[in-house]
């Protein structure tokens, strides 16, 4: 369990993080969202004990990261932003080095490295030098070194940045796999990633926490009601006059789309799709499309972090 309490961190006069508080429970996968420069990496650097906070603190399983730095670090696996690795080392040697530094006994290291090789798919690159690896493999080596000591907590700073779509899917699956039994905090600015792999989302902007909840909660907290759009083959004026005086919804926009069909966008406080369908039937309209504009995290993100 991680508890971040009133954490503030500045670099000289620049306040990177301002009094952030949140908690991450055991076994949760939490997505850390925010625009670039919002303070995600800074927060993570403090959580891993790399940077000392200016104010506030972080408790990991009840232990203060500053007072009990080493036991806390033993519990955390960390993948820093842009995956720094020793370029001049062979992948196997590098993992062996991290395992040794993590205090894994020499006789257990081959087994741990083998387990990580299987989990992260490193078979082909174990004998290669780190600087010869592709971005995707570097990322996997980074994940492997973060998990080599089987930590209960993983902190991953942008684990999928710079990867191609296939690699993103692979790493995401890997993270979901890992997240079954561990606490994971991962930062990203890719929203679909959060939707795909996180139980909870924390959004920060300008160093301030602006949202904290499940993706579902955040979507429903978004202001404004439901939006439904329909397309029809009927005369725009005629439909507009009916819908204009139809109580349950309000016409936001209408016109002719690229296919020559009439379209309407309606706003309402509840789900009106069924009523709308019956209305169309009663007026003998030829309905070719009807769907609810799902509010997604992107809207939440934009609303919370812009301006």
């Amino acid at each position: 369990m991680i508890e971040v309490q009133n954490l503030s961190k500045s670099y000289g006069p620049v306040e990177a993080v301002r009094s952030i508080s949140f908690r991450v429970d055991q076994g949760e996968v939490v997505g850390f969202l925010g625009p670039n420069g919002a303070g995600k990496s800074t927060t993570m650097k403090v959580m891993t004990g790399y940077l000392p906070p200016n104010e506030g603190t972080v408790l990991v399983d009840g232990m203060d990261i500053r007072k009990e730095a080493l036991p806390v670090r033993e519990r955390i696996g960390y993948l820093p932003e842009s995956t720094p690795l020793y370029a001049d080392m062979i992948t196997y040697d590098y993992l062996e080095f991290v395992a040794a530094m993590r205090g894994i006994p020499a006789e257990d290291r081959p087994a741990r490295i083998r387990a990580m090789t299987n989990a992260c798919g490193l078979h082909d690159v174990l004998a290669k030098r780190v600087d010869a690896l592709s971005k995707g493999y570097r990322q996997r080596v980074g994940l492997a070194q973060a998990m080599i000591h089987n930590p209960p907590i993983l902190i991953l700073d942008e684990p999928t940045s710079g990867l191609d779509p296939n690699q993103i899917v692979e790493i995401r699956e890997l993270i979901r796999e890992i997240g079954r039994e561990r606490t994971v905090v991962l930062s990203t600015h890719i929203l679909s990633e959060v939707q795909a792999s996180c139980d909870r989302v924390i959004i920060i902007d300008n160093g301030v926490l602006v949202a904290d909840g499940t993706p579902e909660e955040l979507r429903s907290s978004l202001s404004g009601g439901e939006q439904v759009s329909i397309t029809l083959l009927d005369n725009e004026e005629e439909v507009a006059s009916v819908l204009g005086s139809w109580d349950p919804a309000e016409v936001v926009e209408h016109g002719m789309d690229d296919n020559g069909e009439t379209y309407f966008r309606l706003n309402s406080s509840s789900d009106i799709r069924a009523d709308l369908f019956r209305l169309a039937v009663s007026h003998n309209w030829t309905l070719t499309g009807l769907h609810r504009e799902g509010k997604n995290l992107e809207d939440v993100f934009r609303q919370l972090t812009s301006g």
Partner: peptide, 14 residues
């Protein structure tokens, strides 16, 4: 420069 200092100093060492 390479950023490995961050890895090194977040290992359980002083």
């Amino acid at each position: 420069r390479a950023g490995t200092l961050e890895l090194l100093l977040t290992l359980p060492v002083r």
